[in-house]
C-alpha cells in the first residue's frame, strides 16, 4: 500500500500542506502591518486582469476600437494591469526589506521574482496586441533588441498572431502556475518571522 504513488503523494501533501495550513484562521502575532496586504492586492488584481481579459478574448482584439462596451472592458484591463504592477512592486520591495527569503523561503522569493519577469513579458505582449499606433511603434522599436541577441528568430514581435496567442494563452498560463505555486509555498512555510525575532513564551492567552 505505502508503495503506491498515489498514496505517497497524498501522504506527502497531507503532511506538508494540510488544509489547516492552507486556510488557517490564525496568524503569528507579528503579522500586523499594511505591507502584508500588498501580496493579496496583487493576487486580487490579477483576478481582475484575467476576468477582463477573458471578456476581451471572446470578442477579439479589434472589438474595443469600435464598441463602447469594448472600450470600457479594455479600460478595465488596462487599469488593472497598471494597479497590478504598482501593488507587485510594493510587495517586492516589502519582501526585500523583510528579507522574506529567510528560513528556507528561497523558492518563495524565486517564484515571485520569476512571476515579476513573466508579468513584464505578458504585459509587453499585451501592448503589442492593442492593434493601434502604439503597438505598431513598439513592435518596430522592440524587434531590434530581440533580434540583436538572436531571440527574434523565434519570438517575433511584429507577428501579431504569435504575440496574440502568447499573450492570451501561454504567458498567462505560466504566470498563473507561478502564482499558485508562490502562494502555496507561502502557506506551506508560514509567514516569515521578523528579523531579530526570538522564541517567546508559547501562545499565552493570545486569542
Amino acid at each position: 500500500m505505502s508503495q503506491m504513488w498515489t498514496a505517497k503523494l497524498r501522504n506527502k501533501w497531507q503532511k506538508e500542506l494540510p488544509i489547516e495550513k492552507l486556510l488557517p484562521d490564525d496568524q503569528p502575532a507579528y503579522v500586523s502591518s499594511w505591507i502584508y496586504v500588498f501580496g493579496v492586492l496583487t493576487l486580487a488584481t490579477l483576478a481582475v486582469i484575467i476576468f477582463s481579459g477573458i471578456i476581451l478574448a471572446f470578442q477579439g482584439p479589434a472589438w474595443y476600437h469600435i464598441s463602447k462596451t469594448g472600450k470600457f472592458v479594455n479600460s478595465l484591463h488596462f487599469w488593472s494591469v497598471q494597479l497590478f504592477f504598482v501593488f507587485m512592486v510594493i510587495h517586492l520591495w516589502g519582501k526585500f526589506w523583510m528579507a522574506a527569503w529567510r528560513g528556507n523561503r528561497f523558492a518563495t522569493w524565486a517564484t515571485g521574482a520569476v512571476a515579476f519577469i513573466a508579468s513584464i513579458a505578458t504585459a509587453f505582449t499585451g501592448y503589442l496586441v492593442q492593434t493601434n499606433f502604439d503597438s505598431q511603434w513598439i513592435s518596430f522599436e522592440a524587434k531590434d533588441g530581440f533580434n540583436s541577441v538572436g531571440v527574434g528568430a523565434w519570438f517575433n514581435v511584429t507577428n501579431l498572431g504569435q504575440m496574440l496567442l502568447l499573450h492570451v494563452a501561454f504567458l498567462p498560463a505560466i504566470l498563473g502556475v507561478l502564482t499558485v505555486v508562490h502562494v502555496l509555498m507561502v502557506r506551506k512555510r508560514g509567514v516569515v518571522p521578523p528579523i531579530d525575532s526570538e522564541p517567546s513564551p508559547v501562545n499565552e492567552a493570545s486569542k
Binding site: 486556510l23 503569528p28 493579496v40 518571522p193 501562545n203
Partner: peptide, 18 residues
C-alpha cells in the same frame, strides 16, 4: 536559520484570510 524555518511557536492572533 533553523528558527526562521520552524513553524511559528510564539503568539498568534485570529486572522481571516478569506
Amino acid at each position: 536559520a533553523e528558527f526562521d524555518a520552524a513553524p511559528w511557536a510564539g503568539k498568534t492572533k485570529r486572522y481571516d484570510i478569506v
